[in-house]
Every structure is written in C-alpha cells, then in structure tokens.
C-alpha cells in the first residue's frame, strides 16, 4: 500500500514539473474517464484538467468521434461544451446519447480553417468551458503548443479529432490515441455492434499497456461501450 502511495505522490510531482509556469495551479481533481478500460492506458482514473487529447482515425465513419465523446462525457456534466464544426456536418440530436445537454452546448461553425484554430484557442483559454471538440486536419507544432498552453490556462479538456496521417506530425498533446476498427465479434448478430482497437500512440509518460479493445453494443438501455478485458493486448 505504501509503495502505491509513493508512486501516486511522485506522479503528482512529475505532473507539476511538466506543467509550465505558475499559472496552472496544482489541480489534483481529474475529469472522470467514461470509457471502461481506458484507465489502463491513461495511468489514472481520468483526464487531467487542462489537457489536449488527440483522437486519430482513418477516414470518416471510423468511430473516433463516438469514442472521444463517450470517454470524456463527464467533462460537460457541469460546464459548457463547445463544438467547433468547420465542415458543418455534426448532427446535434445525435450527440444527445453522449450525455450532451444541447441547452449547454455551443456550436461554432467557422468558414475558414484559420478561424477554426483561432476559435479553438480562444475557447480553450476560457475558464468555465468544460470541453472543446474540434476537427483539426493540419496543425503546426507551434500552434499545437499554443493550444496546449491555452488549455492549461482554461482548465477544460481539448478534444482534437484528427485524420490518421497526423500520427507523423509532432504533438504537444497529453495523449494521442489511434482508433482502428476491428472485424465484428459475431457478424450474424441482428443488433448493431462495433469493435475497435484503441492504441495509445503517445503520452507524456509511458505505461505498460499500449492498446485496448473496445466494443459497442446498441442494446436497449442505451449506448454502451465496454472494454473487452480478455483480449487486451500486452505491450509490444
């Protein structure tokens, strides 16, 4: 028990060293992770406040938005959610199963990519915003650094949805996940079911496990995403 406590204290100290400047008060509270099993990749029970998370996926319809929304849905429980939708294709009613309260959600629909980046930085910098969701195609490392600093000031969660080819670009994000669809477990099932491998490409700290398998079943009591414990792959 004592060793675990020491490890927790040490990781807290590493975190405060990693944080730049004195602007970010040592916030011990975290945003609870909503995706069961993901904590093995995160190293703790949730997302630290004021961090950027990148979700990469190949092509649209791969499911990274669903997973990102589901995993961070605790972030907009008490606060505003901002969705920056420069392609104007997010369907607001479909976000409601992800605990999104549309009365406390603002959609920003900029026309220029530069405006989207500006809005993202402005929003991340603001306290009182629970989370910002944004499609980001290209991001220079300088811009990424600015976003990360803005998130540290604001204390919200920055969720960047990016194409898979962004994995070669450098990043200042706290976590970078790659979502890969897997063949369905039982192809003959009538209900909709999906399965993904969520791979942790990058994190500030290294963890033993690098990927988990996540399954979605559209059963009667709502959208349910649960990790399949047995098929978790160990680190390579």
């Amino acid at each position: 028990m004592a060793t675990r406590q020491i490890i927790a204290e040490l990781s807290q100290r590493i975190r405060t060293i990693e944080r730049t400047g004195q602007r970010s008060a040592p916030q011990t509270d975290i945003i609870l992770n909503g995706l069961q099993g993901l904590e093995r990749l995160l190293g703790e029970a949730g997302w630290p406040r004021g961090c950027l998370v990148e979700w990469l996926a190949e092509g649209r319809g791969a499911g990274s938005t669903s997973l990102a929304l589901w995993a961070s849905r605790a972030a907009w429980r008490d606060n505003l959610l901002v969705m920056i939708d420069s392609r104007r294709e997010l369907h607001a009613p479909a976000t409601m199963p992800f605990a999104v309260d549309l009365s406390r959600t603002v959609f920003i629909r900029p026309e220029q990519p530069l405006d989207a980046l500006w809005s993202l930085e402005q929003t991340l910098r603001t306290r009182g915003i629970g989370a910002v969701v944004c499609d980001v195609e290209k991001l220079s490392s300088q811009a990424c650094r600015r976003l990360q600093l803005a998130a540290e000031i604001g204390g919200g969660l920055g969720i960047l949805l990016r194409p898979a080819n962004a994995r070669r670009q450098p990043s200042f994000a706290e976590f970078r996940f790659l979502v890969q669809p897997l063949p369905p477990p039982n192809p003959s099932a009538v209900a909709v079911s999906r399965r993904w491998r969520v791979e942790l490409l990058r994190a500030r700290r290294q963890f033993a496990q690098r990927s988990i398998v996540v399954e979605l079943s559209n059963d009667s009591d709502g959208l349910c995403v649960a990790a399949e414990l047995a098929s978790a792959t160990p680190a390579a």
């Binding site: 607001a92 009613p93 549309l102 959600t105 920003i108 629909r109 900029p110 026309e111 809005s119």
Partner: peptide
C-alpha cells in the same frame, strides 16, 4: 466569437 465569425457562426442547436 460572434463578432469575429458572424452571429450565424456561433449557434445553439435546437431539436
């Protein structure tokens, strides 16, 4: 946001 992007770009969704 509304003054830079225009009021129609900062919206709420009403089902």
């Amino acid at each position: 946001l509304s003054n830079r992007l225009g009021a129609t770009a900062v919206v709420r969704a009403i089902p």
